[in-house]
Design a protein around this nucleic acid. Structure first.
Lengths: 350, 350
DNA sequence: ATGAAAGCGCTAACAG
DNA sequence: CTGTTAGCGCTTTCAT
């Protein structure tokens, strides 16, 4: 049990050679005799030698760990971002530490602290909705830990960023509603604090303007949590307006699902009376009745790209080369289902 | 930029004292002068000293990192297990590294390898459905890295385990169907390889037996992936039987959702003609139409408990004390919704 | 091709 | 109370 782990020293002694020689052999260095190398490998194998990464990390001051902070894992979008991150990190030889902020700034601070204790080489973070200061992240940068912001970004941060084109996604979603003949389109937006929801709102307005549709203030409703409950209540409010909309673009899928519930309860048909489209293409969106059209974000790909950027910066930083922070804007795509298309089109189960 | 990080040495030199004194001060050791301590803290503060955890980890041969391998993050159940893990790990001063196996044995091996490189102190793992050998885990144990199995366990592993009472959950689910007057109850089971599905099947049969209902072989259908698609197809097969069931207990929620789709397509009413109950209480289960009754597992709590066990074993191992591997069986609970209760009972939105 | 020596940053053991 | 010494396991000079 407590038999100490095998060290280079053990192998060296057993073979009657020096420790550096063993090291050189195991690391396939050039200047080492073939015969020696063979004997070292053989014995290492036999003793089940495992390099002590603590020593190596210590020597190189490098952990090969990337820290990841996201608001909530349970969200389908973030699960997929994380999958992309883990995948690409594996490819590049990095491990991934995870922390969730639960949309709390204080939690986010704690996460950064935990990560500093674990000596992460780089950080990928999607900011909590309640994070307005970024000193904790700048602090990391000052300690030569590159930071990459994903999706939920902050203009005060001078760092690499991965965002998706929320503006265009919203524009296309709205354009789609117009294309199926809708004229009185409502928008349920979230808190306008996060960059993402603000862009979605802008894209919506821009599409209306472009197609010469009136921008009716009463048809733009704000809710803070963009939850199902809120979507439900907000839609009920919309339906109580003197002139009700014939389509609703919701800033998130849960809101849209709430909206669907409200519309169905009122005995209205989807999409004939009111079409509904959401944003983010949650897993559950294909399961609700009717299946929800939505704007799909390249979540997995965003994760991959984030790792690519952060590792690039890690390497440049280690080589003391100047780093230029890239911002990657990724394209969204429309996933059209019955909530806007109706039964006409056969929609696959998945 | 490349100004090297502050070390104890820098502080010691600036203050004209020895390095150990600085160490003692910073660590609030007993035998250090108040005045010295004050000066050290002051300067450390001023220089933004941050302890170099690489050195400490190296010295203690300890990372304060727990590795976690699960099949798929996107699954609601696992997301919540992970949340529980991160939460409790934070409490106990540990960070969490994450890896997903995607139900692949090879992937799982890679995960263990990655983790070994990162020198995890302990591992929490939910085995992939294709993992039948556990040498990789035993290897970890031999290197004094405690392993805790969660939910997907393996009898060959001599380790701590967290499981939930699938048998009882299935029993209660079936009993509930009986209690609402159902007599011809079908069961859609998964591959009988994993311990979990096997127990669910046993619980189902046991309840039928206990209530003197016949065990009709044709009403027990197996599908391998327990996916929505499979649930749909399997249910269609069930409905093609000469005598169709009046209730279906599905081994997972996705299967149940597929079942609902099939039943609705056939023009049958839920639950009047056929009641449906699932297992795991996925987020989406409350959203489908009708909302799905299900057996809820204490996912978050399972995660917490896993951390508790693994940390306990880590500590015992470090102190060279004997460790007794505990197995924790956690209770499930029924979440009843319209798919078995009907509209009668007002079901809350959440 | 190999060995000897030094050092990464920190802490524990031992003196005084 | 404080300083000196040593060592965690490995790699990287610098000799030979």
């Amino acid at each position: 049990m407590s038999k100490h782990n095998i060290r280079l020293k053990d192998i060296a002694e057993e073979l009657g050679i020096s420790i550096p020689s063993v090291s050189r052999a195991l690391n396939n260095k050039a200047d080492i005799g073939e015969e020696t190398k063979r004997r070292v490998f053989e014995l290492a194998e036999k003793l089940h030698y495992q390099r002590n990464q603590f020593a190596i990390n210590f020597k190189n001051q490098q952990s090969f760990i990337i820290g990841v902070i996201i608001p909530q894992i349970v969200h389908h979008f973030f699960s997929n971002v994380i999958s992309g991150i883990i995948d690409e990190a594996e490819n590049l030889g990095y491990g991934v530490m995870l922390y969730q902020s639960n949309e709390s700034y204080e939690s986010e601070l704690k996460g950064v602290e935990t990560f500093q204790k674990s000596m992460i080489d780089g950080l990928i973070i999607s900011l909590s909705d309640n994070t307005f200061k970024v000193d904790h992240l700048k602090n990391l940068q000052e300690h030569n830990v590159p930071v990459v912001l994903v999706d939920k970004v902050n203009p005060d941060m001078d760092s690499a960023k991965i965002i998706c084109d929320d503006y265009k996604g919203a524009y296309y979603a709205t354009e789609h509603l117009i294309s199926i003949g809708k004229k009185k389109i409502a928008h349920i937006t979230g808190s306008l604090e996060p960059h993402t929801t603000r862009e979605r709102c802008k894209g919506f307005e821009s599409a209306l303007r472009h197609y010469n549709l009136p921008l009716v203030p009463n048809l733009i409703k704000k809710c803070n949590l963009v939850s199902r409950e809120e979507g439900y209540l907000t839609t009920l409010a919309l339906l109580a307006e003197p002139e009700i909309p014939d389509a609703i673009f919701c800033a998130t899928d849960p809101t849209a699902i709430g909206a669907i519930k409200a519309i169905k309860e009122k005995g209205l048909r989807i999409p004939d009376d009111i079409a509904v489209i959401g944003f983010s293409d949650w897993k559950m969106s294909s399961i609700v009745d009717p299946p929800l059209s939505s704007v799909s974000q390249p979540d997995f790909e965003m994760g991959r790209k984030a790792v690519e950027l952060v590792v690039k910066e890690i390497q440049l930083t280690r080589e003391n080369k100047p780093v230029k922070h890239e911002t990657h804007v990724m394209e969204t795509s429309l996933v059209l289902r019955e909530s806007t298309l109706g039964k006409s089109k056969k929609v696959p189960l998945n």
